[in-house]
Design a protein around this nucleic acid. Sequence first.
DNA 1: GTAGGGTTAG
Length: 556
Amino acid sequence: MLRLKLFPSYSVLLGKSSINYCSKINIFRRRTFDTYIHHHLFDDIPQKDISSLNSLLNSHARNGEAVATWDLFLKMHCTRTDLNSYTFTPVLTACATLLDPKRGHQVHALMIKLGVDCEIVAKTALIDLYSKYGQLGDSVSAFYEMRYRDVVAWNAILSSYLRHGLPRKALELFADMRKERVEFSEFTLCSALKACASSRACQQGKQIHAVVIVMGRDLVVLSTALINFYSHLGQIDAAMKIYRTLSCRTDDVMFNTLISGCVRNKRYDAALSIMSLIRPNAVALTSALSACSENSDIWIGKQIHGVVIRQGFTHDTQLSNAVLDMYAKCGKIREASLVFDRIARKDVVSWTSMIDAYGVHGYGAEAIDLFKRMEGKENNDVLPNSVSFLAVLSACARSGLVEQGRKYFYMFQEKYGLVPAPEHYACFIDILGRAGQIEEAWSLFPGMVDKNIKPSPAVWAAVVNACRINLDVERGEFAAKCLIQLEPNNPGNYVALSNFFAAIGRWDSVDALRSIMKRRGIIKGEGGSWVTMHKFGDKIQHEHSGTASFGNLQEV
DNA sequence: GTAGGGTTAG
C-alpha cells in the first residue's frame, strides 16, 4: 500500500482509538500529502467522534475544498446532535468562498439556535463571512456584539472596511485599537498600510513603516504592503528601495505589486524589465499589458499576447480583457474584436471594453449593436453597469447619434436602475449641445438637483461647449464662471473658455484668460499623435497607434 | 478554528 510505504508509522496507529487518530491528524495536517493521508486515515477510524469530524472539516476548508466542506457538514447535521463552534468555523469559511448568502444565513441561524454564535472565533468568522457577502452592516454588528475582542477580530473588521472601500473608516478603527492598547500583528499593519495607500494618508503610512522597522518583522507580505503604499503615493523610488533592500524571500505577489507600481507611476520600461525577471503569471501579464495600453506599445503588447497564449492563460477573462484593451488602445480594433469573440466567459468589463473600443474609434453603430448583443440571450446574465452606461453614451456622442443617446440615457435608468453620475450628464449634455438641443440640455439641471447630483467640472465644461456651438452668451458666461471656480488650475478648462469667448467675439476675454493663465503659471500641454517605427534590416515598418498622446516619435 | 500583500473597462 502506497500509504503505508510513505508513512509507515501510520500502520502502527491503525486499530487504536479515534482520539489518538485525531491528535495525529492535527500533527500532520499542514505537511505534504496531508489531505491524502488525512482523508484516507479518516476512513479507517472505526468510531468517528465530533473532534475527528471537525478536524476533517477543517482540513477540507484549509485546502479550499468548499463543496466538500459543505457536503460533510450536511451529513454531520443530519446524523449528529453534538455540533460545536469548531464545526461551524470551517463551514463559515466554506460558505464565504461559495458566495451563496442563503447557505451562510442558514448556518448562522443554526449557530444561534445551538448557542454557539457568541464564541470569539465563531464571531470572527461571522465578521468575515458577512464582509465577503457584501453585508458590511452585519459584519460590523458581529464585531460590536463581541464582549471581548482579540487582535484577530480587530483585523477581520479592518479588512471588512477595506473590502467595502472605506479606508478612512479602517484607519479610525486602527486608531481605536491603539486607544484600547491592542497589540498589533503583522496582519494589522498590512491592513493599515493598505488603508493608508487607498486614502493617501502619507504621514500615517510612514509612521506605520517605522513601526514595521521597529517590530523587525521582515516579512514578504509587509514589504509588499509597503511597496504598494509608496507606489500609490507616487513615490516609486521609495518603493523600489524597499525591493532593493529586501532581506526576506520574494514571491509572485511582491513582484506583481512592483510591476503594477511601475505602471501606476508611468515607469513602463521598468515594469517590463521586472516582468522579464519572473516566470509569467496572469496578474503580472495583466499589469504589463496595461503598461502597453497606456504607452500605445503594440510591439511589446503583441509579444505579451504571445506569452498569454503559450502559457495557456487564454481562459483568464480578466487577462483577456487586458489583451483586448491593449489592442483597442493601440488602434487595432479588429484584433480587439477577435480577442473579444474568443473570451469564453465574458464579464461586464469584456463587454464594456469592446463597446468603448468601438465608440472611441467612431464606430457608433457597432457599439450599439454590441450593446444589444449584451442585452441578448448569448450573454449569460451579465448586467451593464455605470461604466457600460457611459461607454454607450460616449459612443453616441462621438458618432453624433442624438436619438440613440437620448434613448439610452433614459433606458439605463428605467431598465437597469442606474442613477446617472455627473459624467453621464456631461456626456448627454455634450450629445445635445452638438445637435443644437441647448434647451433640452438646460432642462436636465432640475433633475440633477432632485437626485442631489452636484454638477462636476465636466458638466460645466460640456455646457460651455454647448453654449459655444449654440452661441448662447448669457448661459455660457454663467457656466464658464462655475467651471473656473470649481477647477481653477485645469489648463483644459481655459481652452474651453477661450474657444467659447472667441466664438462669441469676446476677444478681450480671450486675452484676459491668457493673462490669468500666465499669472497662475498654467500651461497647456501640446497635443500630438504617436507613431512607432520598427526596423527590420534596411526596411522600416510603420505602426500607427490610434490613441493620441503627446508629441513623440519613438524608434524601436 | 478566525484575519493580511498584487491584476482588467471610464
